[in-house]
Amino acid sequence: MTQLTREDVLKLARLARLDLTDEEVETYRKELSAVLDYVAQLDGVDVAGLEPTSQVTGLKNVMREDKVIDYGMSPHDLLRLAPKSQDGQIKVKRMLG
C-alpha cells in the first residue's frame, strides 16, 4: 500500500506550482495513493533484456531548414495575448520578496 503523507502532497504541489487548499491536499493524498497503488502492479513484471520506449516512430534527428516562416503576425500581436505588457515586453509581478 502506497500511503502518501500530507507533506508528500505539499512537496509535489510546490514542485508543480499549485496552490492547493487544505481540502484538496487531503483529497489528492487519498486519490494519488490509490492511483499509485494501481500502477504498482508493474513492480513484478519481468522486463529483463528490454529497453524503455520513449517514442514509437523510429525517427531520429529530424531537421528542417532554419528559416523564418511568415505567420503574418507582428511581435505586437503576440504581446497583446499577455495579461500585462509594457514597452514591448511582458510585464510580470516582482520576483523577490
Partner: peptide, 11 residues
C-alpha cells in the same frame, strides 16, 4: 522508466 520498459513489452 519501468512503465516505458513495459511499453516495449507491449510493442
Amino acid at each position: 522508466r519501468k512503465a516505458q520498459t513495459v511499453r516495449t513489452k507491449l510493442i
